[in-house]
Simulated assay, not measured.
Amino acid sequence: MVIRKFAAIDIGSNAIRLLINNVIEQENKPPAFKKSELVRVPVRLGEDAFLRGKISEKNQNRLISTMKSFDLLMQVYGVEKYMACATSALREAKNGREVVERVRKEAGMKIEVIDGKKEALIIASTDLKDIIKSDRMYLYVDVGGGSTEFTIFDKGKPVMSHSFKIGTVRILSNLVDDTVWEEIKTWIKTNLPIDGRVEIIGSGGNINKLHKMSGRKIGQPLSYIWLNAQYHFLNSMAYEDRISELGLNQDRADVIIPATKIFLNAAKWSKAKKIHVPKIGLADGMIKTLYYQ
């Protein structure tokens, strides 16, 4: 048996995450991927990028400190290779390239800024065989802070994907108008059969938190009815109460509502009654990409 360690750093619009994975290699067996450590730092780069058009000095410094700490953690864990990807916030910031270069110089860390199409492809490379059934179609919805990636799976394989400029931080900043919602609705209704065969696979920190709040076991899907009721329940509470009464982190207590709205609309327009939550996403896809490269 050989145990190798790989790491993925997902630099999102709402938070920065480090995922460290053990990859267990055994003779005559496929490699097994086991999560070893997940660290999340709430550096909200999206507020800078979407509202002011550039990453502030303060958040640049926080990003550099985060990357330095992640580098130390990877050394301690004995990570042999890492991949760091930045999504819509650094992609859209006017000084995005400058920030990436500053991180390289001051933290010694290389960041790849990926577009929505590549983001969707990496997400689609995650292992979903335990969920996907060949007689159903699935709409994979990955909700981020600045963008949401939609991927259609048919007969167990990804057949189509699209990235939309809609995300939790963008919605909170009042930067999403009705035309974007209409574009998503049209895309879903044009590319999916509305016959009850479609189920949703959700990824992102918010749907993972919602699944945990539901009390359901791992592998048990959320229902559209429960998610709709939870949306109205959360929306009826003050931001402070979501923190004090529900125990949500302050950077989760606001974004969870727009995230729920995105999942609800996707389910409504696709006529999906079930939302599977496998708790995998971009970082998991990055680990697979690294390993198989």
Rank of each mutant, 00 (worst) to 15 (best):
I9M: 04
G12C: 01
S13H: 11
A15C: 07
L18N: 04
I24K: 11
N28G: 10
P30A: 14
P42I: 08
P42D: 09
R44W: 01
G46R: 09
A49S: 14
F50T: 05
L51G: 10
E57N: 10
R62F: 10
I64L: 02
F70A: 07
L72Q: 13
Q75M: 14
E80K: 11
M83N: 08
M83I: 12
A84R: 14
A89M: 13
N95R: 15
E98P: 00
R104N: 01
R104F: 00
A107C: 03
A107G: 05
I111L: 08
E112T: 03
I114H: 03
K118L: 14
E119P: 05
A120L: 11
I122N: 07
I123G: 05
S125W: 03
I131E: 11
R136W: 11
M137C: 10
V143C: 04
G144M: 04
G145Q: 02
G146I: 01
F153H: 03
D154H: 13
S163E: 09
T168P: 02
R170P: 00
I171L: 12
S173A: 15
N174R: 11
D177V: 04
I184K: 11
W187T: 01
K189R: 12
E199G: 02
I207R: 09
I207P: 00
M213K: 05
S236E: 13
M237A: 09
E240W: 11
D241Y: 04
L246G: 11
Q250W: 14
Q250C: 06
D251T: 01
A253L: 07
D254C: 00
V255Y: 14
T260E: 03
F263S: 03
A267F: 09
K268D: 06
W269M: 06
K273W: 11
K274T: 10
I275R: 05
I275A: 05
I275E: 02
H276C: 04
V277N: 09
V277L: 12
D284W: 08
D284N: 12
G285C: 14
M286A: 08
I287N: 13
L290E: 07
Y292A: 06
